[in-house]
Structures are given as structure tokens and as C-alpha cells.
């Protein structure tokens, strides 16, 4: 979570509200912020740290591990209509890549701004060409986009 806290300004610039959730109490969140995270991130954690001690929220999102009593690394991008657009769930030992989260948010924001008339191809990065699905594009994607890297 320190990675997200560190880059929180990037998310704010995109108009994104961040919530973190774990089974720790909000009192423990305070201790973690005060004793560790505030030493990694200037000013401490800038977003709300939620407590889900009973795992109720984690169960609703399919990320609560009953055997261990913890929540998996689940990351959900929710649009302004309250609809989940993207999710990624990792087991505990591997951390997320923040840049990929930002890329997906930017892609979904572009699609939404276009009212669904545009789509982003695989590996799309902001500033790169987008696809405009329609009759003219059928069979012609090769003219406007090629797999790269």
C-alpha cells in the first residue's frame, strides 16, 4: 500500500478516490501509518484505510481467504456509475504494479469520455492511437495497429 500512497497524487490528478481495506482494525491502521508508512511516504497515508475485521467486505468482493483469515491482494477499478470495470487478484507474496493500474484507469476514462465509441488495443499507452470499432474497422485493424514489443 505504500506504493499507492507514494503515487497518490497521480491518482488525484485523474480524479480517483482511493480506499484500502484489510482485516486490521482502524486502530492498527493508525499505528501502521504512524510507525512505518509515514516514514516511507511524506505526510503519511493520504487515503482512507478501511477496517474489515470480520471479512464481510472481502467476502462480497471474493477476496477473503477463509483459511488464513486475511484478504488477498484484490484491486478493483470502479467507474462513476459504481460499476466495477477491472479487477486483479494476487496471492500475498507478489505485489501489484502501480503503473498498470494507472494505465487501466486512463484507458477506461478514455473509453468513457468517448461514450464507448473508442477502444484501446493491447498494450495501449496514453497518447497512442485508439481503435474506433465499427464496420470500417472489421478486418482492418492491421492497418491501424500492430502488436509491438
Amino acid at each position: 500500500m505504500s506504493a499507492v500512497a507514494d503515487k497518490h497524487k497521480d491518482l488525484q490528478a485523474l480524479g480517483v478516490e482511493v480506499f484500502s481495506v484489510s482485516v486490521d482494525s482502524h486502530f492498527v491502521h493508525k499505528m501502521w501509518n504512524d510507525h512505518e508508512l509515514s516514514k516511507m511516504v511524506d505526510g503519511g497515508v493520504p487515503f482512507h484505510m478501511l477496517s474489515d475485521q470480520a471479512g464481510n467486505i472481502g467476502r462480497a468482493y471474493g477476496v477473503y481467504d477463509e483459511a488464513q483469515g486475511i484478504e488477498l491482494r484484490g484491486r478493483f477499478i470502479i467507474d462513476p456509475d459504481g460499476v466495477i470495470q477491472a479487477m486483479e487478484v494476487l496471492t500475498p507474496p507478489v505485489g501489484r504494479k502501480f503503473a498498470e493500474t494507472v494505465r487501466q484507469i486512463q484507458a477506461y476514462q478514455l473509453v468513457r469520455a468517448s461514450k464507448g465509441t473508442e477502444a484501446t488495443p493491447a498494450g495501449w499507452m496514453p497518447g497512442e492511437p485508439v481503435l474506433k470499432p465499427g464496420p470500417d474497422l472489421v478486418g482492418n485493424v492491421w492497418k491501424v495497429w500492430k502488436p509491438h514489443e
Partner: peptide, 26 residues
């Protein structure tokens, strides 16, 4: 929730209308 030195209560739907990043961790 803990937020910037204080304790609050968060309801997810109060933030509908904005983009939300919801992150669970162990």
C-alpha cells in the same frame, strides 16, 4: 476507517460519481 489522524466511517456509495480504486491487502 483511519484517515489522516482521525477515525471516520466510509460508505462506498457516497463516492459513486467519482472513479474509485479499491485495494484489498493481506
Amino acid at each position: 476507517a483511519y484517515f489522516k489522524g482521525g477515525f471516520t466511517n466510509v460508505q462506498l456509495s457516497n463516492s459513486f460519481g467519482k472513479w474509485i480504486l479499491l485495494c484489498f491487502y493481506p
